[in-house]
Nucleic acid binder design. Structure first.
Length: 757
DNA sequence: TTTCTGTACTAATCA
DNA sequence: AGTACAGAAA
């Protein structure tokens, strides 16, 4: 390690960043605005600890919210300090806490091979419980119940405390759901009996472990000399309390965050963790990173005008040395499908005009369901895209089925896995039988496994034979798992369970897909076994990893050049040269569910702020005035957030034109009352040279017969003459010389042209 | 017990 | 538009 190298990374930092990195001891808060080099500061600080202060990587705990952020950070640290970076305790809160619970969870009654229930498991267990308690699942909606329990756990409230606290019970009674606390209790008991933890339990149980076993807490307090937290604005109470405990002895707590980017209050994130940190740590050192390196000045300034509308925030002002850049474009479309088309054609044009790649573009939306129209349009324009998020590979039915077998073979208490696989493939154990098993288990205080294991003794019913076969199958799997590595065991189970055969025999396209997915899962297990970094190659070790993988973490198999589509939440921490934010409509963004309180609305605005600040060079916003929701056409108003951006940063360049045959009175949407942005926009001097106003009867003609020499009208560029035709089929292009806009190359699949004679 | 069919209901964000 | 579930039929 040469002296020069050791300091070179420090020289890449600006003075404030450097101060933050070099502040080693004591609690510190780094408020890092969007694009201000937050990750760089965090990684350099860890590297600095290891290189210059000789801290053993094993003694560093670094917590993030996504596996992706963690592995990225690890790679960047590895570049500076080398292989040692592997030894840092770095990962998501959930994965690190799961690791701790595997080691010490037996102190609070969990086996180290406990199962992690995902949201689906939790909800279906809740559904079963609600049914068993003879409650109406229209009143006690599993979703609502789940959220309520989750919120309680994230605030470190046990079911007992919940039942004893009038704040909750009066609430529930007012909502006509007095048994909420009871469901909470049964749910917790059932999870415990199943040796299972849901996502929230990973936090809550870690808290309980440390609270009730000070010797365990002491061990970890001594072990972790430095605790660092990324995206601190998104921590919930449980996460904060646990990390505070861990750092209590040495007080070396570093947190990095931006209150303006807190967008996870819905899952318990507590913005006051960051706003009030100074109260818990009076000697807190605060660093503010306010210089943005990512975006153009227009984008930074526009984002500033938005976020300033929020009341609850730490004072700061993001600025940049970057060039001014282009104005933000605003696209208005008649429908969601048209919005897709306009976005796709805009991407195509920008690509051609600025020689960009697909991967320079991202389309962001509020809800996953919005991706459909965008996808369709991109496909039609032959633009390759990838969707981040949505259904994870590991959430697919066929994958969950296989995992169900694997899970259950390892943990026979896993109730959800059992229910999933007991009659899969069909072996004649139907709903009636399963019901009987559940009742027997409940009456005799046995686990479901104990009931079916002894079924021959009780000798009940027609399906007894099938159950005995099933039990023997699982027992065999259990033995084989001991003898084999994860890959070989999974292979055996996939075959002998009959699942693989069933999928193989399904020759529909879907069935083929499923079969391939299962093969892919087996490949993933093979990779896991072959990976030298994994010490434990057992199946249970693989399952532990898989439980916390989400869709963002799945690495793209093909590294092709693609446009990225994702929700704004997924986009946090990422950047793209060109960003499209679609669906800028009231009730969609902000979501109608977030309009009830100021706090909710401010969270939506922060989400908008996050979206805006993803863009490096160019930002395009769009909205549609009609949109299909629940299979019905609904008319929409432009989002109030559009009015939050100061009009000097926006220009309306492209707008769609009313269909002549439509009954909808589009003109009423033009002067959007209550949203001053359009009013202000109209006062703006026209930017472009005499913008073409299309003739009132403008309709796109069929361009299949278009040829050189023809006169055409374009909605934006006005009148012109075709000078050249290019290619055939989907990429058929026309070069048109316009009277006022020069020669443009238009892709005929989307260009609206009227042939005039 | 399994399969089929009509109906009701939904889609907010993530680990 | 798509799915999940209940109830009927096989």
């Amino acid at each position: 390690m040469k002296e020069g190298e050791a300091t070179s990374y420090l020289e890449q930092l600006n003075p404030e960043q450097r101060k933050a990195v070099e502040c080693i001891n004591g609690p510190s808060l780094i408020i890092a605005g969007a694009g201000s080099g937050k990750t760089r500061v965090l990684t350099y600080k860890i590297a600095h600890l290891i290189r210059n202060h000789k801290v053993d990587p094993f003694n560093i705990l670094a917590l993030t919210f996504t596996n992706k952020a963690a592995s990225e950070m690890r790679q960047r640290i590895e570049k500076i300090v080398g292989n040692e970076a592997r030894n840092i305790w770095m990962g998501t809160f959930h994965s690190v806490f799961a690791r701790i619970l595997r080691i010490d969870g037996h102190r609070i009654g969990y086996p180290s091979k406990f199962t992690i229930y995902d949201t689906d498991d939790s909800k279906s267990l809740l559904k079963a419980i609600i049914k068993e308690l003879n409650l109406d699942d229209k009143v006690y909606k599993p979703n609502t119940v789940y959220n309520r329990i989750s919120a309680a756990k994230n605030r470190l409230i046990s079911w007992k405390e919940y039942q004893g606290n009038p704040i909750f019970t009066t609430d529930d009674e007012a909502a006509m759901k007095p048994l909420m606390g009871k469901i909470f209790q049964v749910y917790v008991e059932r999870c415990f009996k199943a040796s299972a933890m849901d996502f929230d339990d990973l936090l809550y149980n870690t808290y309980v472990l440390y609270r009730d076993h000070t010797d365990v807490l002491n061990k970890y307090q001594q072990f972790f000399h430095y605790v660092l937290i990324d995206e601190f604005q998104d921590t919930n109470i449980a996460q904060y309390v646990i990390t505070k405990k861990l750092a209590a002895v040495r007080q070396n707590l570093t947190v990095v965050g931006d209150d303006a980017q807190s967008i996870y209050a819905f899952r318990g994130a507590e913005i006051y963790n960051i706003l009030n940190l100074e109260k818990d740590y009076p000697d807190l050192q605060v660093f503010k990173l306010e210089q943005n390196y990512r975006s153009t000045r227009n984008i930074v300034n526009a984002a500033n005008t938005v976020i300033i509308k929020n009341k609850a925030q730490l004072p700061k002002k993001l600025w940049t040395h970057n060039p001014e850049g282009e104005l933000i474009e605003l696209i208005k479309a008649n429908s969601d499908n048209e919005e897709g088309k306009l976005v796709a054609s805009s991407i195509f044009e920008e690509k051609v005009n600025h020689q960009l790649q697909n991967s320079d573009f991202a389309v962001l939306y509020r809800t996953n369901s919005q991706s459909r129209s965008i996808e369709e349009a991109l496909r039609r324009n032959n633009i390759k895209y990838k969707i981040i998020g949505g259904l994870s590979f590991y959430q697919r039915r066929e994958i969950k089925d296989i995992l169900g077998y694997l899970r259950f073979s390892i943990n026979h208490n896993d109730e959800q896995a059992l229910k999933r696989i007991i009659n899969l493939p069909k072996r004649g154990i139907g709903a009636g039988t399963i019901n009987k098993i559940v009742v027997t288990a409940y009456e005799n205080k046995l686990s479901l496994w104990e009931v079916i294991e002894n079924i021959s003794n009780t000798g009940s019913g027609r399906s007894a034979g099938a159950i005995i076969d099933f039990v023997n199958l699982i027992k065999r799997f259990e033995i084989e798992i001991q003898k084999r590595d994860a890959y070989s065991a999974a292979n055996l189970i996939a075959k002998e369970s009959g699942l693989l055969k069933e999928l193989y025999e399904d020759k529909t396209i879907e069935g083929l897909n499923r079969y391939e997915n299962v093969q892919e899962l087996l490949n993933a297990i093979k990779e896991f076994v072959d990976n030298t970094e994994n010490e434990d190659k057992s199946l249970s070790s693989f399952l532990q990893e898989v439980a916390l993988i989400t869709s963002i973490d799945e690495d793209e198999a093909d590294d092709q050049d693609k446009v990225t589509l994702m929700t704004i939440h997924m986009a946090k921490g990422l950047e793209f040269r060109h960003v499209y934010i679609v669906g800028m409509e009231e009730d969609l963004f902000p979501s109608q569910m977030m309009l009830s309180s100021r706090a909710d609305l401010e969270e939506e605005r922060r989400l908008f702020y996050v979206a805006l600040t993803r863009a490096m060079e160019k930002l395009t916003l769009s909205y549609a005035i009609t949109r299909y929701r629940f299979g019905r056409l609904k008319s929409c108003e432009p989002s109030r957030f559009l009015g939050d951006i100061h009009p000097q940063f926006i220009r309306v360049t492209r707008s769609a034109f009313p269909k002549i045959d439509s009954n909808i009175n589009y003109s009423s949407y033009d002067g959007i009352s209550g949203h001053n942005f359009t009013r202000n926009l109209q006062k703006q001097p026209k930017r472009s040279v005499s913008k073409h106003i299309p003739s009132p009867d403008f309709t796109a003609s069929d361009t299949s017969s278009l040829s050189t020499g023809m006169k055409v009208e374009h909605p934006k560029f006005g009148y012109g003459v075709v000078v050249e035709m290019d290619e055939e089929g989907a990429n058929r292009k026309a070069k048109v010389k316009f009277d006022n806009f020069g020669v443009k190359t238009l892709l005929l699949t989307f260009a609206k042209l009227k042939i005039c004679n």
